Computed example of a mutant assay.
Amino acid sequence: MSALGELATIRNRKGRATRSPAERNDGKAAIFFLAPWFLGLALIVAGPLVASLYLSFTDYDLLSDPVFTGLENYAQMLEDPRLRTSLVVTFTYVFVSVPLQLAAALGLALLLDRGLRGLPIYRSAFYLPSLIGSSVAIALLWRQIFGSGGLINQVLALVGIEGQGWISHPDYALGTLIVLNVWTFGSPMIIFLAGLRQIPEMYYEAASLDGASRVRQFTNVTLPLLTPIIFFNLVLQVINAFQTFTQSYIVSNGTGGPVDSTLFYTLYLYQQGFTALNMGYASAMAWLLLMIIAGMTAVNFFASKYWVFYND
């Protein structure tokens, strides 16, 4: 070891040996204030997580002791037609609603970034749906808007078009929930707006001097520099979309109808666990959902190196 290395080692040892009482008290205080978080992590997250993993290998009806059955629940999922239907509905919802939501959020962020008068008011108004979009009240309102005598049909009647019960038709029910998710664009819009404000103006000035139109500036300057924000919003919104439950439950009265057209995976999991009291099977479904979300997130991170531009 060199002399400098020995000197650094001696100083480190002296530093540890001669810590003042105030420094030691600071460490104890940090542990004290972090203790509730660690306790909550163990009791609210880690504990139920381990319990659900065990229950996924059991036959458990919430009323009697769980009986270990091995991989029977996972084998049952391979033969469950409603589970396959719920996966198709959920993936359709995610792959359609998330891109539309992000496109709407980015479009409005671009408009608001132009320096409108009263920007805080517009920003708050557009963000409001994200705060209440997943609530029971909004889901009930959505059911009234798209019902047979709802607002949509009343507007269509003004132009001589006879509407229908959109949420009661299997071809359109899922579409109404997709529209609801697109409507809750406020959160990604705020993030997009913050990202747009971080793009240096000199890039646009240089592009203008080169004769680039606004469209070229958007495609060659804005989009590349905004790709990290797009990626961030994409990951968050995909995860949130896979966990959607309230809208489908309220709009379909908890059935996933009509004809299972709004049977989201989370709703079917709820039906198995708390309606059929098949908690072991529901736990296995929950772990499948976790693996699906983890897989989709991993795919997004893997693909990001091909299209996300980090300006170092």
Score class of each variant (00 low, 15 high):
238 V>D: 03
82 R>H: 12
168 S>G: 14
187 S>N: 14
66 P>V: 07
311 N>C: 01
46 A>Q: 10
81 P>T: 13
53 L>H: 08
98 V>P: 04
43 L>R: 01
274 F>M: 05
295 G>F: 11
97 S>A: 11
245 F>Q: 05
127 Y>T: 03
294 A>D: 01
228 P>C: 07
120 P>G: 09
218 F>P: 03
270 Y>R: 04
274 F>Y: 12
277 L>G: 00
287 W>Q: 09
307 W>G: 08
262 T>Q: 02
32 F>K: 05
176 T>A: 03
257 G>A: 10
108 L>T: 10
17 A>F: 14
172 Y>Q: 01
309 F>M: 02
276 A>L: 09
20 S>P: 01
107 G>V: 08
195 G>V: 01
243 Q>E: 00
119 L>W: 09
219 T>P: 00
308 V>L: 10
38 F>V: 15
287 W>M: 04
208 S>D: 13
111 L>I: 15
105 A>E: 00
70 G>Y: 01
255 T>A: 01
163 G>L: 09
54 Y>Q: 08
56 S>C: 06
133 G>V: 02
71 L>R: 10
37 W>G: 04
236 L>A: 06
73 N>G: 08
240 N>L: 07
170 P>L: 09
208 S>F: 05
59 D>W: 04
267 L>Q: 09
14 K>N: 02
21 P>F: 14
139 A>G: 11
163 G>V: 10
199 I>S: 08
152 I>W: 09
148 S>I: 15
228 P>Q: 01
181 N>M: 09
287 W>F: 13
27 G>C: 07
257 G>M: 03
282 A>N: 03
121 I>R: 09
7 L>M: 10
237 Q>P: 02
259 V>I: 14
270 Y>C: 00
57 F>T: 11
209 L>D: 09
34 L>E: 00
274 F>R: 08
287 W>P: 05
19 R>A: 08
17 A>I: 07
238 V>M: 06
151 L>Y: 13
107 G>E: 05
63 L>T: 15
237 Q>S: 15
289 L>K: 11
178 I>R: 11
13 R>N: 13
127 Y>I: 02
275 T>W: 06
238 V>R: 11
147 G>N: 04
304 S>A: 15
95 F>H: 08
55 L>F: 13
291 M>R: 07
61 D>S: 13
76 Q>P: 01
287 W>D: 01
116 L>G: 02
188 P>G: 03
301 F>A: 05
222 T>D: 00
269 L>N: 03
178 I>E: 03
54 Y>W: 14
176 T>R: 08
84 R>L: 08
73 N>W: 02
217 Q>P: 05
157 A>I: 07
312 D>A: 13
213 S>E: 02
150 G>W: 06
158 L>C: 04
80 D>K: 07
139 A>K: 10
67 V>W: 04
169 H>T: 12
194 A>K: 10
55 L>N: 03
10 I>G: 03
46 A>S: 04
200 P>Y: 08
268 Y>I: 07
308 V>R: 12
138 I>W: 10
180 L>Y: 04
224 P>I: 00
224 P>D: 00
128 L>F: 15
14 K>H: 06
261 S>P: 03
176 T>E: 00
104 A>N: 04
106 L>A: 11
300 N>A: 15
196 L>N: 02
257 G>V: 08
262 T>C: 05
134 S>C: 10
110 L>T: 14
213 S>F: 09
226 L>M: 06
54 Y>N: 00
28 K>V: 15
14 K>C: 03
253 N>Q: 15
147 G>Q: 04
64 S>Y: 07
140 L>A: 12
67 V>C: 00
